[in-house]
Amino acid sequence: MTPVTASPTTPTAPTAPTAPPIAVEYPDSDGQPMAENTLQFEWITLIKENLDWLFAADPQVFVAGDLLWYPVEGNPKIRQAPDALVVFGRPKGYRGSYRQWQEDHLPPQVVFEILSPGNRPGEMSRKLLFYQQYGVEEYYLYDPDSNRLEGWIRQEGILDWIETVQDWVSPRLGIRFDPSADPLVIYRPDGEPFVSYGERSRQAEQERQRAEQESQRAEQESQRAEQERQRADRLAAKLRELGLDPEIL
């Protein structure tokens, strides 16, 4: 019988340790200024603040200005920072950036851009293509220097240019645009125009002063009525002293 010889065992090569995944950074700033001049800044804040006021009572409407939006996880180079954006279906609250995959995959439905002299046609065309590709439903572009408003609405999968923006009502926001006024006037659904924080504070102060004046007038009327009542009581008392019944006079 031939003896059975055991086959030599081939040693197993050690497994190389798996490198940990590289964390992807999504910066909260792109290093660009929010606005290039005071006029552009005023319009950005006017629109953002009024949208905040408009949806203040709805906890599921998120409004932001100049916030970096990252639509694609893992690719921080794909990003845009609209001058103002509105997201329906996402809670209010602090965000360093809007990372769409962390926001129930919801893109901003409405965005605004305010032109400045430094904006170039190519840059604005790229923004339009970005907003079309990543799901924006309404896009509004305003040039405060020329008082020119343009708008796009998503139809059949693309952002279609709005031919007539005069008295156009945003389907999502319910606001109405009047570019025939110079500068542009934007009206809330209740018919009140968008106003700056300073103007709103002035209006609130005027309302407070009117309310105070009404309160003072009411107090004065109350005092006059009380004085008349007291005079009538004194007269009635005097008549009774004279033996007369004031009720039958």
Rank of each mutant, 00 (worst) to 15 (best):
E241C: 05
P179R: 09
R224K: 14
R240A: 04
R224T: 07
R234H: 05
V169N: 01
R229Y: 02
I44N: 10
A35I: 05
S97H: 11
Y131K: 07
L68I: 14
T10C: 02
I22T: 15
T38Q: 11
L46T: 03
N50A: 05
R90P: 00
E241H: 06
I22S: 05
F55L: 13
F177G: 06
Q100D: 00
I153L: 15
G198P: 00
L106P: 01
Y187G: 03
Y139N: 03
K238H: 12
G174V: 09
D145P: 00
D28S: 08
G65F: 11
L129K: 08
M124A: 10
Q216W: 11
R176K: 15
Q40M: 02
L141N: 02
D245R: 09
L67N: 07
W101I: 11
V169W: 00
P71C: 06
D104A: 13
L184H: 10
A6D: 03
Q216H: 10
P33S: 11
V111Q: 06
R200V: 00
E228C: 06
Q133F: 01
V110N: 08
L39F: 08
I175R: 11
P144E: 12
K77P: 00
Q220M: 12
E226R: 14
T164Q: 13
I78Q: 13
Y26L: 09
G174A: 08
D190V: 07
P144T: 08
T2C: 01
N75Q: 09
G118A: 15
E226S: 12
R79Q: 13
Y98Q: 10
N119H: 11
R240P: 01
Y139G: 03
L128K: 12
A35W: 05
G243F: 09
E214T: 08
A225M: 02
